[in-house]
Simulated assay, not measured.
Amino acid sequence: MSRVVIVTGAGRGLGRAHALAFAEAGYSVVVNDRDDAAEEVAAEIGANAVVNRDDVADWDGAARLVDAALGAFGRLDVLVNNAGFVRDRMLVNLGESEWDDVVRVHMKGHFAPLRHAAAHWRQLHKSGRPVTARVINTTSGAGMLGSVGQGNYSAAKAGILGLTFVAAAELDRYGVTVNAIAPAARTRMTAETFAAQMAAPATGFDAMAPENVSPLVVWLGSEDAGDVTGRVFEVEGGRICLADGWRRGPTVEREERWPVTEVGPAVRALLDKSVPPEPVYGVE
């Protein structure tokens, strides 16, 4: 029996590319999207695809999404959390709804399907059935470094990193791996942010095509990737970069409370020993 994958936001862009790539690799696919384009993607795949139109950031909708895989194919092996959108504003102009909507679709839209899928896999494990499940979350360079004009999006994508690390640690005992990708590709969501790089070349390799990201996603969803968890990969064109997260750097310690007058010189000494952080996107 073929492995089964859920891809959220699979109607267009990266999600569509992932769904088609999994289908080509022999997977049965649940094509989740609120857009009518989901029907087109499922039709392109054929009999091994079903459409789910639920809102992934709705608790009951996310449960129905997992049930759609189990009802149609009798199993669930891979969850690709991809759905999202942007509402870009500088912080001084960012409205409450623009914050809430972006955080909701990215963070809750990752958590809710993950929570329901994880409960299913835990139940399988406790019943003694083997589990080789995979979760691939979608973060961003904005989540790792920040991006000017995208405070809401950067915060949500950074939150997805934290969720990925916790889920990897908690779900490993059940046979579930959890990793994240930070892709760069030509999609509707990135059209304004990366306008200068969006145009496909007249000839040669199209480094910004969303299809370039999908091979890594399909591999992370495979049984072969069972020893890889809690990791973050940047992927763009033909480049795959293993991203290192926060690590403890230079340290100074004393066996008593620090006097305020001595904190400044101590911190400056640490900064002198440290590697400067990568710049926030959009900073000249």
Rank of each mutant, 00 (worst) to 15 (best):
A119Q: 13
A37H: 11
L91C: 08
A63T: 06
E223F: 02
V102F: 01
F111P: 00
M107Q: 14
P113T: 03
A17T: 10
W99G: 04
N48G: 12
R257S: 13
W121Y: 09
L70D: 06
W219H: 09
H125A: 15
E253R: 14
L124E: 15
G13I: 01
A142Y: 06
M1L: 10
V263T: 10
R115T: 02
A25S: 12
V66S: 03
R115K: 15
W246H: 05
E98I: 03
V30Y: 01
G95L: 08
P279G: 03
P277R: 13
R122I: 12
S222E: 06
D172C: 07
T251K: 12
T138Q: 13
P259S: 10
A243S: 12
A118S: 15
G84C: 11
E234V: 07
N152P: 08
L94W: 01
R122F: 03
H116G: 00
D67H: 10
A38Y: 00
N152Y: 04
T203L: 05
D227W: 07
V148A: 15
G143A: 08
D172K: 14
A180Q: 02
R173K: 14
R89H: 14
A266Y: 03
G221Q: 06
E253G: 09
V103M: 15
A23S: 13
P130T: 09
V105M: 11
V78K: 00
V50L: 07
T261N: 08
F85K: 11
G149C: 09
T138F: 10
W99Y: 06
V80A: 10
S127G: 03
D58S: 15
D88R: 10
P215K: 11
S147K: 04
V86E: 13
D172F: 12
A42G: 04
L242A: 15
R173E: 14
L216F: 07
G141T: 14
A209M: 01
G226P: 02
V80T: 04
L79Q: 03
R3S: 05
E211G: 14
V131D: 04
V263F: 12
Y174L: 05
A19I: 07
S214F: 02
V103K: 00
M198S: 08
V280F: 04
S140R: 02
R268I: 02
G95K: 13
V217E: 00
M208L: 14
V50F: 09
E211D: 14
P130S: 11
L171F: 12
A195F: 06
S154V: 05
E40P: 00
R247V: 15
L242G: 08
A195L: 07
A191L: 13
A184V: 15
A47K: 11
A142L: 07
H116T: 03
